[in-house]
Design a protein around this nucleic acid. Structure first.
Lengths: 261, 261
DNA sequence: TGTACATCAGTGAACGCGCGTTCACTGATGTAC
DNA sequence: TGTACATCAGTGAACGCGCGTTCACTGATGTAC
């Protein structure tokens, strides 16, 4: 697609259920030895592709180059991925999952009742992961490639971080808003939450909207910092990020500990 | 650079003062007829390049393709731009300037004393411009190309929007914070404002920090929306954007009119 | 355990393509006197 | 106003390259009986 001349907005491929690179129909780990080897090779390919992504960016990712790196013929790659696009999609899904896992893990290690610490752990995990995997972050949160439309399989992995944040938001709501940190209401917005973000069901729309703002602000900061737009503006990104998170916490009705005003 | 194999972080070209595509040393409009024609051709080239950007994305922008579109030989292009990279840089600078101009114009049309309306006009101009020029926006605010380092000539155009926002922030400060909308202080952050953002000099660091947050949130929202991450979450982007802006206004000490809480 | 067959992984050559950039050149446009 | 020369715009052929993808193939690994 990067080379093709498709106009903006053209769908590339729906889901292609029995595609080449896909694992056997249902889940679980591979049963037969052959399937296990196959899965291992796929991992090897993706790892090499990720390395190239980091070095040269998504636009320069090439099937031939990956094959070379692995000492494989370029045609051999097609036993594992039906096209360059499919390989890219696999990387996108992995990126979402990897980020989601990092966030879930970091957040899960915090005492359930420490709402700010949970939010802070999640936010920091996003930022840390982004800094550790800048190209993968850019692949997912950077400018989209015209003509490429994320296939359906992307949706669930993409929802992991929002979902984790949603749970925090809900717990904060259930715990009751702390005094002295009022959430200002947002009204007149139609929220169309996909069924993926269940925890939010039942919350007042303005609370949900505040949650979305928090989500946008978190990723807005991380993107701006990672993409170099804060250079020459903020010296100590770490401290600034902490302050931003404290700020946002108040927005979603979480007490920071350090009182505001 | 997109095709080359440069590792991350390699500087491509400093400034190349007397480059091919550059106009005569000092400013002003072209004097000789030849220079005028030349400038017109450069504009034609950039326009065609922009069209391709919109259709196929930055990665697929090709000197040969642009030349073809213009009925010119590909080698002829090199009379105007020394390389593909130089053409891309010109597009980046144009994008910054175009966006900056749009914001300045929109903001300048509002009564100086209507602080919220000024902020709102500027914010809306950013969003509108981004939607009208998605690929150019992505070129500038999307994931950076590894190996490409923005040359010095980029800095001033890039500062136009922050500058416009800074003026609003300063005017808000000079007007005194309205009662009932306290700005919560941010401390412990080292701000290293480049000399470009003069209006902020003299403001308390926490006010400046709040301004930066506003800036990040504005672009964070626009990027998220444009890059498709709000799909399935927010239905009415217009209304939501308005609410976000009202929110942010309070953060930077601007009274919205509709009281909060 | 042993044979016969089917499945799969991987190869190497080839197709056709578009790319960035260089180079020696031809005319047209400007400049100096 | 007219000539001689320098500058510039633009051409066409060529260089060398890497790309995605296909195809007929060879062995190795698995499966059925």
């Amino acid at each position: 697609v990067l080379h093709g001349g498709l106009p903006l907005g053209v769908v590339v491929q729906p889901a292609s259920g029995d595609a080449v690179g896909a694992s056997p129909p249902s889940s679980g780990r591979p049963e037969t030895p052959r399937a296990r080897v196959r899965a291992a090779v796929i991992e090897e390919i993706k790892a090499a592709a990720r390395a190239q992504l980091a070095e040269r960016g998504a636009a320069a990712l090439s099937v031939r180059h990956v094959a070379r790196e692995l000492g494989m013929s370029s045609s051999g790659m097609y036993r594992y991925f039906a096209s360059r696009d499919e390989l890219l999609t696999a990387l996108i899904i992995d990126a979402y999952n990897d980020l989601g896992e990092a966030v879930e893990l970091a957040e899960s290690r915090v005492d359930r009742s420490e709402l700010f610490d949970r939010w802070w752990a999640a936010a920091r995990a996003v930022r840390d992961w982004a800094k550790a995997h800048p190209q993968e972050y850019g692949l997912v949160f950077g400018s989209p490639v015209p003509g490429y439309v994320a296939p359906q399989e992307t949706v669930a992995p993409a929802a992991r971080v929002p979902l984790a944040l949603a749970v925090i938001l809900r717990d904060a709501w259930d715990a009751g808003r702390p005094a002295g940190a009022p959430t200002s209401p947002i009204t007149g917005v139609d929220l169309a939450l996909s069924e993926v973000v269940e925890p939010l069901i039942g919350l007042p729309p303005d609370v949900v909207a505040n949650g979305i703002i928090a989500w946008v602000e978190l990723f807005g900061f991380v993107s701006f910092e990672l993409f170099g737009h804060l250079v020459g503006t903020v010296d100590n990104g770490d401290t600034f990020f902490r302050r931003v998170c404290e700020r946002v916490a108040v927005t979603i009705g979480i007490d920071v500990g350090v009182p505001d005003a």
